[in-house]
Write a protein that binds this DNA or RNA. Sequence first.
DNA 1: CACTCGTGGGG
DNA 2: TCCCCAAGAGT
Length: 356
Amino acid sequence: MSDSFARKLLAWYDKNGRHDLPWHHDRNPYRVWVSEIMLQQTQVTTVIPYFEAFMRRFPNVAALAEAPVDDVLSHWSGLGYYARARNLHKAAKQIVSDHGGEFPADQEQLESLTGIGRSTAAAILAQAFQTRATILDGNVKRVLARYHAVPGWPGKTSVLNRLWKCAEQHTPEERIRDYTQAIMDLGAMVCTRSRPACDVCPLNSDCEAKARGEQKLYPGSKPKKEKPEKTTWMLILEDREGRILLERRPPSGIWGGLWSLPELDPAYQPEELPDACEQAYGYDCSQPELADGFRHTFSHYHLHIQPARLNVANTSQVADNGNHQWVYRDEALTLGLPAPIRTILTSSQSSPQEQT
DNA sequence: CACTCGTGGGG
DNA sequence: TCCCCAAGAGT
């Protein structure tokens, strides 16, 4: 069956699509894979410089598998969702050990690799192997929800399953690589979340939402929930030379695997800082100098971060548990420090830098 | 299934 | 300032 959906889409793509993104050149499975992981929940313009630096440092699967995980994490610093970096590294080792260093050209085997799900596996198949497979990312969800007027929030399983069926029905037999790129480009450039450019859309004559004048209703919006307010203490431990003590965070959870300021258990009440600090780190901190706290909004909660500046006389007091390390302030800025922590460090300096 | 992970951009 | 959300996947 010659679905006019794919035909019209491809004709539009040939003239108007994005053909010059960094991962479009030298399109091998490794480059497609890394780009797909980086692009998960992350915008193209953010990814581009990270992708290029990552490829210079880890040009192929073997290089990635051999590298220390810290090296991988530092190249991810600032991108967010750091589990992606740990999973990427783990999967590289799996590919070397279980697949002889070559990507499997098979949906099921790809999905068995850590960090590769249904949509990413399909993207690798379509773009690197030119094998028919169906993707469903945020762009495709939006295009299809409008085209077929699929009601409901795509985060809900029933809605998601409907969209997967739509996506599979439209997937053509020919030009699968171009089609996969085309439907994402349409979502990113024409069928945008706000103010879609329906007048230049190649599918506008068949779009159900457009026919009803209800583009704004699709896709259905997420049910809103109240974000809880959390409070935590982050300690700026400083020695006489101005070095700051950083702590390696556990591999899971927020900023997993990155170096950050030591954080007190959020269960401690702010009023109890000195006691809590002494329990956690075993030294006197009865007279901390408190900097101004600030509030940072995360996806699912608000976090009130309260920094406490402490001068530490003897570094061995706190650096002996294997999870702590002294680094210079300048080095700290180049490690895996996420935005709120960078803010704390820079705001504690006399000359703010690295702020744009 | 609901929840978690992050950072930057747009309305 | 505050909200939603973006080339999703793991738990």
